[in-house]
């Protein structure tokens, strides 16, 4: 099914169209990341309806739009967004494959401090894996960490 020309259409209306016309897509990919050395790792899971939009193309805005909105929200005097039009007026991105969609999601939903420098520490701050590579039960969930076996090769050398 072709995506209508959504440039200039409010994002929520595009999502209504997607909800009606696209099948949700569950992914096996998981993004494991550590926001703080003192905390357990977190796991990011893509929303199936969002993933169908990413795979379809012509619906989601470029990821820089979210970064601009986040910049506005980080201002100390932020009350309300005044540049929401960026979501609706910016040319939507083309269809992504599943791997590229997960990379987009990382840049959208993870703190930039993690994905911009994910491999600059003693070990990666972020790992993309498959669901079946995670522990099968929630035992000791608050102690889960990215394995030390994944020490960055550059650092190890």
């Amino acid at each position: 099914m072709d995506t209508p020309d959504f440039k200039g259409t409010r994002m929520i209306d595009r999502l209504c169209w997607a909800k009606k016309n696209l099948e949700p897509v569950q992914t096996d990919y998981r993004v494991v990341f550590e926001d703080s050395v003192d905390e357990c790792c977190r796991i990011l899971i893509a929303d199936p309806n969002w993933l169908s939009c990413a795979l379809q193309g012509g619906i989601l805005p470029p990821v820089w739009v979210y970064h601009e909105l986040a910049k506005d929200e980080a201002q100390p005097d932020f009350k309300k967004h005044t540049r929401g039009y960026l979501l609706h007026e910016t040319q939507p991105i083309e269809a992504l494959d599943e791997k590229s969609a997960i990379e987009y999601l990382i840049m959208k939903d993870l703190p930039q401090s993690i994905w911009r420098t994910w491999n600059e520490g003693n070990k990666p701050k972020m790992v993309i894996c498959r669901k079946d590579q995670l522990p099968a039960t929630r035992e000791w969930r608050n102690a889960w960490k990215i394995s030390d076996d994944l020490i960055n090769k550059e650092q190890a050398a």
């Binding site: 999502l15 990011l44 899971i45 893509a46 929303d47 969002w50």
Partner: peptide, 9 residues
């Protein structure tokens, strides 16, 4: 869901 992109555990 509707209007969500992800959930983080």
């Amino acid at each position: 869901s509707f209007n969500k992109s992800s959930i983080a555990d």
